Lab assay of single mutants.
Amino acid sequence: MATGGRRGAAAAPLLVAVAALLLGAAGHLYPGEVCPGMDIRNNLTRLHELENCSVIEGHLQILLMFKTRPEDFRDLSFPKLIMITDYLLLFRVYGLESLKDLFPNLTVIRGSRLFFNYALVIFEMVHLKELGLYNLMNITRGSVRIEKNNELCYLATIDWSRILDSVEDNYIVLNKDDNEECGDICPGTAKGKTNCPATVINGQFVERCWTHSHCQKVCPTICKSHGCTAEGLCCHSECLGNCSQPDDPTKCVACRNFYLDGRCVETCPPPYYHFQDWRCVNFSFCQDLHHKCKNSRRQGCHQYVIHNNKCIPECPSGYTMNSSNLLCTPCLGPCPKVCHLLEGEKTIDSVTSAQELRGCTVINGSLIINIRGGNNLAAELEANLGLIEEISGYLKIRRSYALVSLSFFRKLRLIRGETLEIGNYSFYALDNQNLRQLWDWSKHNLTITQGKLFFHYNPKLCLSEIHKMEEVSGTKGRQERNDIALKTNGDQASCENELLKFSYIRTSFDKI
């Protein structure tokens, strides 16, 4: 039985969820670079991206490699990797027998973001014989899940209580170790020597080791999670996991709180800001991140802002960003909400898709409305799209047979046209069989910064309504002859009103 693990408890099935942008060198404390989270699957090609990484700022997932063999891993080693800020997950990587050479110096898994409450997941690794993470000293947050690894031993010899604050939620089941077939031998045991430290858990006094050649490092209890030197002297209180010299914040392997210019500090002093819960960055760093993602459509890219001495992905609820200094300031009234469309555009074809934009005031991208039916549609669209004030790209209304009016965009005031449909149009209306009105132009103002209007096959939309939009939106004169079809717009509506004058002759039985 794995020490510190839980057996036999019912657990939810383990679901495996399925960018080499360097964020800056980590400095003297770390020998390499800070790398983003990685999802490495199918083959070993991307694994080489770990070569210079000291910190993975995010998670590391290595999974679904069915053609790899043990010899493929023999020359692979990433000794610079010290810390993973989120979680480490391995799933069905064939041929991998140990992690001792792959990650010989991995010391800390912070667990800032977890995989279903777990910071370390080893699942269905069919050839893994031992973990071998002999320098792993601290899992700051989260638990361990090690399950269905039929060859995995050296679990009962690990004292997880020396690595985690609590072992109650560890789930370590259905491994070879369960069948008591392992016969784990710690260093020196074969020669009758006791080389590794022994600890007591559940009444068992057991030597602690990761492999037959690597003991588990056990520091004096007084050192807590700070770690200790090879001689057993406690590291500085700002260290986490390990250090090369005692009581020196510049000799830590990793930091308990924050890293700044080669030393570990309790908090980031001005003019620095907390970033990702582990390091200090200056304003320029946060500003660069903001600008890199301002026009990016890459998933996970955030326009970072500053709030409460932190550089964070977005302002919290009730705050909006001051564009001059990136500071989050309290909103006066309802907060603006910028919604970034991942692929640059979004099609609204149902109430469900409209709900995804609920509360958005600025759309960074283009909207395509293609709704053919739905219950209580006008009210639903207004509830979900009615706060949109600005669209950076274009607005396209296409084959939306259920629409009679666009009044559900009740606050839309600006279409920038930074991206144009077919390279020309910022407003595009095609084949809307029941569209009769755009907006009530006596109450609604709309500016279209650039781009043209396109109207074709809107049989109940009168040309007068379209011409009014040209005047109000500032697009009059931009359109070419064929942009607004004269014969297919309003051709099934009563669009022309003329005053009919009647004269009559009164007659009676005795007068003409």
Rank of each mutant, 00 (worst) to 15 (best):
L50V: 06
K191Q: 12
R297E: 04
E130W: 07
N295G: 13
I82C: 11
I222V: 11
D39K: 10
E97L: 11
C53Y: 08
N282R: 15
I222Q: 10
G232P: 11
F78K: 02
A230R: 14
G58R: 02
C209T: 03
I146N: 04
V173R: 14
Y171H: 07
W210E: 05
C219T: 01
C268G: 00
G333D: 15
A119Q: 00
T140Y: 03
V144C: 08
G241S: 08
G333Q: 15
L155G: 05
L136R: 01
N117A: 04
P70F: 05
G300C: 08
L136Q: 04
N117S: 12
R263K: 08
K67M: 05
L106H: 02
M65K: 00
W210N: 05
G227I: 02
I40M: 08
N322Y: 04
S237N: 12
G192K: 10
D165L: 09
K224M: 10
H302T: 13
L233M: 11
L90E: 00
C196E: 10
Q299S: 05
C35L: 00
R263S: 12
S112T: 10
P271S: 12
A230L: 03
N308F: 11
S296M: 09
Y259P: 01
C252A: 01
R69K: 03
N135Q: 09
L240Q: 11
E33G: 14
K191F: 15
F283P: 02
D159N: 05
K217Q: 09
Y319C: 11
D169G: 13
I146K: 00
Y87E: 00
G241L: 01
V218E: 10
H59D: 01
S284I: 00
M137E: 02
S213E: 09
C228L: 01
D277H: 14
D248W: 04
L106S: 00
I122T: 06
V218H: 14
L60Q: 00
H302F: 12
Q299M: 12
D247P: 02
T250L: 09
R263M: 13
Q276V: 10
C234N: 01
W210L: 03
S323N: 09
L76V: 13
P313K: 11
N175Q: 10
K191I: 15
P70C: 01
R279F: 06
N195R: 07
H212R: 15
F285D: 06
I312F: 02
G142P: 00
Q287W: 14
H48T: 12
C239I: 01
S225H: 14
D288F: 05
Y118R: 00
D177I: 06
H307F: 14
N309R: 13
L50R: 02
K217M: 14
P79I: 02
R145C: 03
S284M: 10
K217E: 04
Y273H: 13
V55I: 10
N138S: 09
T199C: 12
T250A: 11
C215Q: 03
F78V: 04
R141L: 02
H307A: 03
Y272V: 08
S237L: 07
N309L: 08
F115G: 00
D248S: 09
A190E: 10
A119K: 00
R46I: 01
H290R: 07
F103R: 01
P269L: 06
N309Y: 12
K67Y: 07
N202F: 07
R263Q: 07
D165G: 11
T229N: 09
Y319F: 14
S77T: 14
N175S: 06
D178T: 09
R46C: 11
G132V: 01
M83D: 02
F78T: 01
H290S: 04
G300P: 11
F66K: 01
R256Q: 11
H48D: 15
I82A: 10
F285P: 01
L60G: 00
C335Q: 01
E231N: 09
P271Y: 12
E130Q: 11
M83G: 02
I185L: 12
M137Y: 09
R208K: 12
C293D: 03
E57A: 09
N150F: 15
S323L: 09
E97R: 14
N52L: 08
V218R: 07
T107A: 05
L64T: 01
A198L: 12
M321W: 11
C243G: 00
P36C: 15
M83A: 07
E49Y: 15
S213K: 14
M83R: 01
S296P: 05
S112E: 00
K80E: 07
P31M: 15
I109A: 00
P316L: 00
K224H: 07
E57I: 06
D184H: 14
F205N: 15
R110K: 07
K129Q: 07
Y94P: 02
N295A: 07
K80A: 07
R162W: 12
G300F: 07
C223V: 01
P197G: 08
T199K: 11
N195W: 14
L128V: 02
